[in-house]
Design a protein around this nucleic acid. Structure first.
Length: 434
RNA sequence: GGAGAGAUGGCUGAGUGGUCGAAAGCACCGGUUUGCUAAACCGACGUAGCCCUCAAAGGCUACCGCGGGUUCGAAUCCCGCUCUCUCCGCCA
């Protein structure tokens, strides 16, 4: 959520920054300002009336004490009338607040000034590359062929169980998935200083709103219903990312400055309905309804936000470097950024079987956009209450990492070499060809 | 799922219709004392919003889990909900 004060005081600035996203949200500013003006007007009026009522009520109390009952009754009548007027105005105030909040919740974050202005992913600048596309002395197989031939994934039975977009990992495939998860958690906790947490995989609507998933992306979420009757529908949602629970850990809290920075790292499966995306890249593991991910979350004082973002991307990059996978880091342009983000780096890993780069990590600084939504603050040494910057980054998404790994490290003999850091977890240095 | 108890400021905890934004203690902050630290003592100390102001100061309103209700007036009475704890049932 944006700061209403910023909108009041610098409406043009806000409109301009919003416009760079190309979503047309800047058109809502006028209505927000209109509601806000009216709200303040009525609020002032009703507060004046309440002040009056409070005063008279005290007088009544005093009169009752002195047994001047008739005078007290007269004043009661007067106050009752004020009370009616107050409740009318209170209703209008509440109504205006509801309308304002509904609009405010649909405004995306303002892009940071350092973000390239652009419309689509074609405008995303590539910042750097690491490694290079691997040369093969043979025609590399796609992960689908590899997984089927080596029985790493049973696509058909996965679909039988849950429909298309669900994976059944088998044998070495299941083990590789587990090895990757452990490797990632160990790397981020032992080497990068994150605190491991293991969150619920279902969260409340409030959490989804807090990180900006809702209201905009309700259609993308799986809603939980207990039993057959629908009364519980919408109380809980399967998490689309561990960001949803983990970023909300300190919602509605007032942290001490000394507690910052907070660095959390969490494994979770991620559930995405991908409504409307059916038929798009459905073959294989690249776009699925459920995948594993290790997520990194940082809560930092605002002045450290952008340094922390650089650190965060570095931590995600380290994963790919250790696994010897070629990747590039791109900066999402204003038009391609996520709803809550002020600045986002994507990391795309090279998948030779696809002949394409796959997004395996998205690292964002949401600044105070989420903190404001969820009521997360910290207290500085001199007693000021400040909204911290909230950062999140994948470190990294697993299904696509899996794809890049098997496609990159496949051998001419049909086996797959396991990079050194994974060998201890896999208890082997290669997945055999047979 | 059933029964009971509870939810008050950063924390602990008093408060059962008006003088309560709320005792007390702790923590935090400022000061005195001190070779340093600690202790002791003194002082300040909730949050949010609106109005006013260049700003500060100030004024007002709301907030005692959340939402309604009764009343001139609610932390306090009534109703609904959520969460926590204890016990029972079911259960990995």
């Amino acid at each position: 959520m944006l700061d209403i004060k910023l909108i009041r005081e610098q409406a043009d600035f806000v409109r301009k920054r919003l416009a760079t996203r190309g979503g047309g949200e800047e058109s809502k500013i006028d209505e927000i300002l209109e509601i806000d003006t009216r709200w303040r007007q009525i609020l002032t009026e009703v507060e004046g009336l309440k002040s009056q009522r409070n005063k008279v009520s005290k007088e009544i109390g005093a009169l009752m004490g002195q047994k001047k009952l008739e005078e007290a009754e007269a004043k009661k009548k007067e106050t009752r009338e004020i009370g009616d007027r107050i409740s009318d105005l209170d209703k209008e105030v509440a109504d205006l607040e509801t309308r304002s909040r509904a609009l405010m919740m649909t405004l995306p974050n303002l892009p940071h000034e350092s973000v390239t202005i652009g419309a689509t992913e074609a405008d995303n600048p590539t910042l750097r590359e690491w490694g290079e596309k691997k040369n093969f002395t043979f025609e590399p197989e796609s992960h689908v062929a590899l997984c089927e031939r080596l029985k790493l994934i049973d696509f058909a039975r996965g679909a039988k169980l849950s429909g298309s977009g669900f994976l059944l990992y088998t044998n070495w495939g299941a083990r590789l998935e587990r090895a990757l998860t452990q490797f990632l958690l160990d790397l981020h906790t032992s080497e990068h200083g994150y605190t491991e947490v293991s969150p619920p995989f279902m969260v409340s609507k409030a959490c989804m709103e807090g990180v900006g998933q809702f209201p905009k992306f309700v259609d993308q979420a799986y809603a939980i219903q207990e039993g057959e009757d629908g009364s519980s529908l919408g109380n809980l949602f399967l998490i689309p990312t561990a960001e949803a629970p983990v970023a909300n850990i300190h919602r509605e809290e007032l942290l001490a400055e000394a507690e910052l920075p907070i660095n959390y790292c969490a494994y979770s499966p991620c559930f995405r309905a991908e409504a409307g995306a059916a038929g798009v890249g459905t073959r294989g593991m690249i776009r699925v309804h459920q995948f594993d991910k290790v997520e990194l979350i940082k809560v930092v004082p605002p002045e450290q936000g952008y340094d922390a973002l650089e650190t965060l991307v570095g931590h995600a990059e380290k994963v790919l470097q250790l696994l010897d996978l070629h990747y590039r880091v791109i900066l999402l342009c204003t038009g391609d950024m996520g709803f809550g983000s002020a600045k986002t780096y994507d990391i795309e890993v090279w998948a030779p079987g696809q002949g394409d780069y796959l997004e395996v990590s998205s690292c964002s600084n949401c600044e105070d956009f989420q903190s404001r939504r969820m009521g997360l603050r910290f207290k500085t040494k001199d007693g000021k209450k400040v909204l911290p910057h909230l950062l999140n980054g994948s470190g990294t998404a697993l299904a696509r990492l899996f794809v890049a790994l098997v496609e990159t490290h496949q051998q001419k003999d049909g086996s797959i070499l396991i990079p050194e850091p994974l060998q201890a977890y896999m208890k082997t240095d290669r997945i055999p060809a047979h």
